[in-house]
Design a protein around this nucleic acid. Structure first.
Lengths: 378, 378
DNA sequence: TATATAGTTGAATCAGTCT
DNA sequence: TAGACTGATTCAACTATAT
């Protein structure tokens, strides 16, 4: 994978000086700072605005340790109206500096993304896709009160319906093993050595995004030499990936601590170093197929009897994918272990369905699900 | 572990006739039809509203065959304002008939889901999760101008912030091979024999949802016997799955063709038997057993020494079920917290009895009480 | 040095009942 | 209604320490 170099040829027909704001971080409120940029001067915008989380008291893990919540002042808003006004203001300011054929990405969670999306549409932006970032290692739901919040949503939009935006279809397809890139991206959180820490080992920013995410965003919707604006620059992930990919950046950030960290981070990079790119490529794994999927898919009905290969043990399937065998209840693995008096058991190969005397391991049905073939329905 | 029965016994203390609208499809506009239902009469709502698709002209595949897009007249709105007014109206009508502790699911795509989500919040609904349905076999993006649109978004919400909603956490966890269920659901489209076709082999409804999706929705947020409302009933996937899972349904639909198809589809079904509908319940569903009961039952004697799992902390049981450890006195939970210097502690899992070097959590004795096994008495 | 075990952590709108 | 009390609840990945 090769990368083109930055740089505008000095002899280009419309040559111009490199603007002084290019590859810098503007300090201040984003709406005010964006007034310093010329109209239609950036090719793409990546924005990670405050999510307006409305957290209650402290949350503790089952081991009693306290969750380090994002409770920073910049994430606090008095009401939805206040958040909407804020959102409308910065999206308008962005629209002025964005080129007519540029595009914008905004990331958010269910706390804010619906408001952002509706306001984007109200302001005349045209949504191209929503892309979901599926986290391979999200924080669990410790109290068991909801589904694990395992994704965030990105909206990709253009400032007008008929914009001729950049989309590197072939590059993305190659990147994705020659399959069209889908709207679901499986990537891990920003942890480990990539996560910026201060001298005391504390994270510098509560919500630093992984470079792998920005890598895909910039690769898909910008060209080398393009200018990428991030109005909520934070610790500069957008700038770091832009530099690695040979794109220009301009950031806006209010907090001096974040600016310092971002500046140091980006200055340490040399542009378009292929080696540096390697680490940004995320892992991708095939999704697991839990036993419950077979029931949903109609491959196994609640009430079905399962047996082991020798017919010694029997169990009945319940609606939630649990098995019952005598007094034993639980997952296919747990009940398989219990009926055998063993510590562990692979339920997929242990349990079988019977059809006319023919025993078939339930693992075979999992293969049907994985293959994507249509199932019979129930 | 018991299961509620379908239907209300006529002799029950607060007996009432089965409402005439139960398990029926109301024909007409959804706001008008919902006025026929009593206030706070449904436990859960699943809504698949029109998507407000704005397709400019026909879409063709590379081989020039026309894509059968969703261009039915019910899916056309003149503007975002019109769509918002429509959305506000039906979400308000739904809020009247939904029980205060019920919940609502709404499914949509990027065309409409941001407006729906923002209006839900504006109307005072409290979002619990957004759940993404990842399609294992989505329609490719034929023009290669965007990412393959491979998912739809569902919003799960309650009508007020402090609602005590139904969430079958343990059942879903069992369903998912003993891992808590996440907000990303990988499920195939509705195809094959499940997809309703007319005599000419054309699909009856353009956006028929897979039963697997509804199966998971109903399993997670309803109990057997609950009433599920679908204000955009279409060809009745919600009703079909509700019947299979021993839930009641009520649907609203404008098109007679859809009503006929849905009615025939549901009438052909018989509900699963009660045993198969039984689901895995968590500890919260079990009756409370005070620590003193173990003493009354003779499972533990006053004066017994308890220790933590590592033997670091010790305490003595007193006749009233309180513990003493140094200067600390109080319940198993309070003393457990005090000796560790923590705010809270689950005494049931913290304290252990010792027998020949073997440590056993006192929670095991609680299991004996709950199981109803005979104890030694006093 | 390699492997095993223990500890830490991540954008989180995270309890229910009785007095 | 506010406060006290009971007691339920976690997954993947990385880091530090121990063997």
């Amino acid at each position: 994978m090769s990368v083109q170099r930055i740089g505008v040829p000095l002899t280009a027909p419309h040559s111009f000086e490199k603007p002084d704001w290019l590859d810098t971080i503007l300090k201040g409120d984003c709406v005010a700072a964006l007034e310093k940029l010329p109209k239609h001067s950036v090719d793409m915008v990546f924005a990670d605005p405050p999510y307006n989380l409305q957290l209650g008291g402290d949350l503790h893990r089952p081991d009693q340790s306290r969750v380090d919540a994002c409770d920073d002042h910049w994430d606090q808003f008095d009401s939805f109206d206040a958040y909407d006004a804020f959102t409308r203001a910065w999206l308008l300011a962005v629209k002025r500096v964005l080129k007519p054929d540029g595009s914008i990405w905004v990331i958010g969670s269910y706390h804010n993304i619906f408001r952002v999306g509706a306001i984007l549409q109200d302001l005349g932006y045209w949504i191209l896709n929503d892309v979901v970032w599926l986290k391979s290692n999200p924080m669990p739901n410790f109290r068991g009160k909801r589904f694990t919040n395992a994704h965030e949503t990105m909206i990709w939009a253009v400032p007008r319906k008929d914009a001729k935006y950049t989309f590197n279809y072939e590059a993305l397809k190659t990147f994705n093993d020659d399959l069209q890139m889908r709207s679901d991206w499986h990537l891990p959180l920003c942890t480990g050595s990539e996560r910026l820490k201060d001298e005391d080992g504390r994270k510098v920013h509560p919500t630093q995004k992984p470079e792998s995410l920005l890598y895909r965003v910039l690769l898909s919707s910008t060209n080398p030499g393009d200018v990428v604006l991030d109005p909520f620059f934070g610790t500069g992930t957008t700038g770091a990936v832009a530099r690695k990919l040979g794109r220009h950046f301009v950031g806006v950030e209010r907090e001096q601590d974040y600016i310092d960290a971002a500046r140091a981070r980006i200055d340490a990079l040399s542009p378009a170093n292929d080696d540096a790119l390697e680490i940004t490529l995320g892992k991708r794994a095939a999704p697991r197929v839990p036993f419950g999927n077979l029931i949903e898919a109609g491959l196994i009905a609640p009430g079905t009897k399962l047996t082991c290969a020798r017919g010694r043990h029997q169990a009945t399937v319940r609606a939630d994918g649990s098995l019952v065998s005598g007094d034993h209840r639980g997952s296919i693995h747990k009940v398989g272990a219990l009926v055998q008096g063993q510590e562990a058991c692979n339920g997929w190969t242990f349990w079988h369905t019977e059809d006319g005397g023919l025993l078939t391991p339930i693992d075979n049905m999992r293969q049907i699900i994985r293959s994507g073939l249509p199932t019979s329905g129930r």
